[in-house]
Design a protein around this nucleic acid. Structure first.
Length: 568
RNA sequence: CGGGAAGUAGCUCAGCUUGGCAGAGCGCCACGUUCGGGACGUGGAAGUCGCAGGUUCAAAUCCUGUCUUCCCGACCA
């Protein structure tokens, strides 16, 4: 491809509204352009890279015996009503009406469509197991689109669904997908980690997320320094343990003035105590029902664990109005004593607390010297807090560490949730009707594009891993006015194409600096520069990643390319 | 949805405090000089100052409303 007429609108400055490296570079290198918040056009370079990513995914999925299909993005409301998700899904589901005022949705995922399809077509155990997948545009009206294509409202996803006759079958299908994912992310040149994830309140046994390690990741993952344990912090269990609590004398509980001290930090500062002496009380709405959760002041509440402990679908913070009305309390001063009739649950870290500071449910008031059992009680204890780096591995008791990750893939054992709701059943060997056992497996394709850039760039631009580079080679003439250079480059371009290489040929009448800067931005791993040594028959090859270069006789180039490319 | 910031030329931004001809750099077009790391000169094109309303002789500038974008918190590939 001659660059003169190729559409790569590079930018010299970073656009003001891009924050993270991948977003900035995708804009600057001419990969994407925004249309609205969370909506992007993929320009030729990005489109080529996406095609390569999809190719890798297809190869590995097909190898795992999954079969590619393509389902409609536009879906009638009825199938969503069948599974109950029309009500449950919430505002993230984009809903619309056709000309007959019939309700539809733009698919954020395809369990309903694929389950309906398999239900109608497959009746016998003899046709199972079956795994179907598609690569398609998904729609989710995200509450907050962010970081360019990392969290977009319209994005390309590979979604796969497996149907099995037994739990053992599901295990095998799940394993096959898990391994395919490992192969895919490895081939894409990513540093990643598969972690245990939370499966949500309903069903779902095993589930793993594939995290690309990156500082801009929105997820925190916890891994053991000894064994191979790794989990999303939402999921990571905290070992049950004897907490070392601050001891008190047998002083009675007293009420004190704590004006404006509505945070842990302020209380620590003003009262001269430790955070671990404070009972942090958090008011929540679990499926609308007010609940108070207690956790020791030096720990963070984990809402996913609360959700699981209560068996709730949804847990969110209680609004200030309801804290006053439903709890009879005051935001910032919530405590376990004297609350109206609400459920109070607590993390294990509360056990054995004495000499504690608790909110008095009155503005600017706390109690001191509160003792669990004597002054306040708790209905039930659970593991409700986030693990910390001071905690130990739930498997082997060795230290754990944290890392940030971008979730690029998710594998999930669904069980029979959708097959039962939609009547996707088969007849087994004995003629008995049974629900199919399902799994689902997603990969964020456009998110991968950004994640790859996050892990593969430097100050000057992108450095594509070879497997996904938009071109094999970047051929550059230093000076287009120089006849020698131009003719050498032209013939070289032709012979490279002949040899089967996909070449981007910068034939633009730009100065060398401009071309080199653009080449760095675009990030094709191997560069061939035709410059002032061209009249002596020498061309330069240069590796984008290391900046190393080598002069090579032009006749030898095509023959030596395989080894030159392999060097990087 | 709550909290914060910003909307002026394709991009990055100044001008706004104190109302008075719409600006700069880069990019773009033409010509010339240059030519291995974002050159230089001359000339040129380009903006409904986000939108609507108000105040005023006069609004990019002041006031009100509204829309959009980005960042921080509750969800997901």
């Amino acid at each position: 491809m001659r660059q003169k007429q190729y559409f790569i609108p590079t930018l010299r400055d970073n656009p003001a509204d891009a924050e993270v490296a991948s977003h900035q570079l995708m804009l600057r290198a001419g990969l994407i352009r925004p249309l609205a918040s969370g909506l992007y056009t993929y320009l030729p370079l990005a489109h080529k890279v996406l095609a390569k990513i999809q190719q890798v995914i297809r190869e590995e999925m097909n190898k795992a015996r999954a079969q590619e299909i393509l389902m409609p993005a536009l879906q009638p409301a009825e199938i969503w009503q069948e599974t109950g998700r029309w009500e449950v899904y919430g505002p993230e589901l984009i809903r619309l009406h056709d000309r007959h005022e019939r309700p539809f949705a733009l698919g954020p995922t395809h369990e309903e469509v694929v389950t309906g399809l398999v239900r109608d077509e497959i009746k016998s155990y003899k046709r199972l197991p079956l795994t179907l997948y598609q690569i398609q545009t998904k729609f989710r009206d995200e509450r907050r689109p962010r970081f360019g294509v990392l969290r977009a409202r319209e994005f390309i996803m590979k979604d796969a669904y497996s149907f099995d006759t037994s739990e053992e079958g599901l295990d095998a299908s799940y394993q096959a997908m898990y391994q395919a994912y490992q192969a895919i992310f490895t081939r894409l040149g990513l540093t990643f980690r598969a972690v245990e994830a939370d499966s949500g309140a309903i069903g779902g046994t095993d589930t793993h997320e594939f995290m690309v390690l990156s500082e801009v990741g929105e997820d925190t993952l916890v891994y053991c320094t000894q064994c191979d344990y790794a989990a999303n912090i939402e999921k990571a269990e905290v070992r049950r343990q004897q907490y070392e609590q601050v001891k008190g004398t047998e002083e009675p509980m007293i009420e004190v003035d704590t004006p404006g001290q509505s945070t842990i930090e302020r209380l620590v500062e003003e009262l001269g105590i430790e955070a671990k002496q404070i009972v942090k009380a958090i008011a929540l709405a679990a499926d609308g029902q007010a609940v108070v959760a207690l956790v020791r002041g030096d720990y963070e509440l984990n809402e996913v664990k609360v959700k699981r402990a209560l068996g709730a679908e949804q847990v969110e913070f209680l609004e200030e109005e309801r804290i006053r009305k439903d709890l009879g309390s005051e935001p910032g001063y919530i405590g376990p004593i004297g609350l109206k009739d609400v459920k109070v649950i607590a993390d294990y870290s509360i056990m054995g607390m004495e000499n504690a500071v608790i909110g008095a449910n009155k503005r600017d008031k706390h109690y001191l010297h509160a003792k669990l059992g004597r002054d306040f009680t708790v209905e039930q204890f659970y593991d409700l807090r986030n693990i910390t780096e001071e905690d130990t591995c739930p498997n082997c008791e060795h230290p754990v560490r944290f890392a940030k990750g971008i979730e690029v893939g998710h594998v999930f054992k669904l069980g029979t949730k959708y097959s039962e709701a939609m009547g996707a059943v088969f007849l087994d060997e004995n003629g008995r009707e049974k629900p199919m056992i399902m799994g689902c497996y997603g990969i964020g394709v456009t998110r991968l594009l950004a994640a790859i850039i996050e892990q593969h760039h430097d100050q000057n631009g992108i450095i594509w891993p070879k497997a996904v580079s938009p071109f094999d080679l970047h051929l550059i003439t230093v000076n287009t006015k120089d006849q020698d250079q131009e003719s050498v480059a032209d013939t070289l371009y032709e012979s490279l194409l002949q040899a089967g290489y996909d070449v981007l040929y910068d034939d633009r009448a730009e100065r060398a600096g401009v071309k080199f800067a653009d080449a760095d931005l675009i990030g094709i791993p191997l560069r061939i520069i035709v410059g002032n040594k061209a009249k002596e028959g020498l061309v330069e090859v240069k590796w984008r990643k290391t900046g190393e270069s080598e002069l090579i006789p032009k006749e030898e180039l095509v023959d030596r390319l395989p080894s030159l490319l392999a060097k990087n």
